[in-house]
Design a protein around this nucleic acid. Structure first.
Lengths: 221, 221
DNA sequence: ATAAATCAGTTGTTTTTCCAACGGAAAAGA
DNA sequence: TCTTTTCCGTTGGAAAAACAACTGATTTAT
């Protein structure tokens, strides 16, 4: 378990917790490691999850197969990332997705109940952990809501404008850079790359904005 | 403060907490009430939030104005609902939306720090509260991810199929009912109602599904 | 240094969505 | 009961997005 401490201290979940405390908390949280081969299923649709997981090594896909058998990749999990946090609510029903190892993986399992039931004396960093986990899902929540607000725009143009407008606000400047290349931005907004590229150029030609690579500048009307 | 207990005991946040305990917790959590007139702003874009709120009475809009001044209603909050939970993370930056009272409102403010810093002795229900709040945002997280998975489909047809497919799984039957009428479903999936209606009928004519009002049946191919 | 791969913009065609308007059925209200 | 409103399917035209294919520029790998 010791070898995961250096990874864990860099995760959002354990941020601000010292090495020694992490080790004692791993015990307190009933942590377990399991390894998976490439192609192996970690969870299958229909299972009930009782743990919170952190991917220690490898890569995972969260994917979904619909009623008619069509496959759809929803998310890619990378080392240090937490997953499963949305499924630990009692009576929240079974998992609707498959979780599959696309490389050889090592996964840390934490007992959810132990995380939320604070042990008053033994674990001085427990409150910190509860905060961290809360902040993490809270943050995720926020970005999900924002993403939905972009995606709910009807046209590619509006999707672009709402996203760029928000980034400008967030970075507190009409000039800012985005963490995506064109294809990634198109995927993020769920639109076609070439159509989006086209729309970006129209917006530039209309004098609403300018860009070079991932650097954007918005102009007030 | 007493008059809000009956409302609070029905909220997800305080579910499982008895009347007397709610009262003592309100004190422990530094709860405060503020009232707002119709049209008054509760928060403005750019503010920093340090509390968790529950709407006690009235109705709120969470809305957004973009860089060029276009207004967009993101969400409607009703009595008993919690809001602000995504913005209490330190250093999460300022609020990106406006929160405005569209009716006369009463809002309960809770000190976020006090919620997460468990008082070991005084408050036996504190752990329960932490769980409740965690479950609530976790749940919200889950539905947001699901909604995104529907909305990220490119065509109206695929949006419909992914949503209906999920509902069938969730309700564990090819026959199920949905909590939307046509307009609401279209809004939920961010598509045009008439186009969606049209697509539904095509799917029916192709033998993939059938429906009457909000009752749907999916057919295996 | 050269080759290969990735990235971004452009264009034209096809497909899909949006939008507006209408009518019948069902539900709600007077 | 009769009227009004809401709901849902339908249609046709306008607008937009998707898609495919291609180019030059830039980056990465050998």
């Amino acid at each position: 378990m010791k070898k995961y401490v250096s990874l864990l201290k860099r995760t959002k979940l354990f941020s601000g917790v010292g090495d020694d405390d992490i080790l004692s908390m791993l015990n307190c949280l009933n942590a377990a490691v399991r390894e998976y081969n490439k192609g192996e299923y970690v969870f299958r649709q229909g299972e009930y999850i009782r743990n919170l997981m952190i991917l220690a090594a490898g890569r995972l896909y969260i994917q979904k197969e619909d009623y008619w058998g069509n496959l759809n990749i929803l998310n890619e999990i990378r080392p240090g990332e937490m997953f499963g946090e949305a499924y630990i609510v009692p009576n929240s029903g079974p998992l609707m997705n498959d979780v599959i190892a696309i490389e050889e993986c090592a996964i840390l399992f934490f007992d959810m109940e132990r995380i939320l039931t604070v042990c008053p004396s033994a674990c001085p960093f427990h409150t910190r952990l509860v905060k961290n986990i809360f902040y993490t899902i809270s943050d995720k929540n926020k970005s999900l809501v924002q993403k939905i607000s972009y995606m709910s725009q009807r046209s590619t143009r509006e999707k672009l404008l709402s996203y760029l407008s928000d980034e400008a606000k967030r970075q507190n400047s009409g000039s800012f850079s985005i963490p995506f290349n064109r294809q990634q931005l198109a995927d993020f907004l769920s639109v076609d790359r070439s159509a989006m590229s086209n729309e970006l150029c129209k917006l530039r030609d209309e004098g609403m904005l300018d860009f070079h690579k991932s650097e954007f500048t918005l102009y007030e009307v």
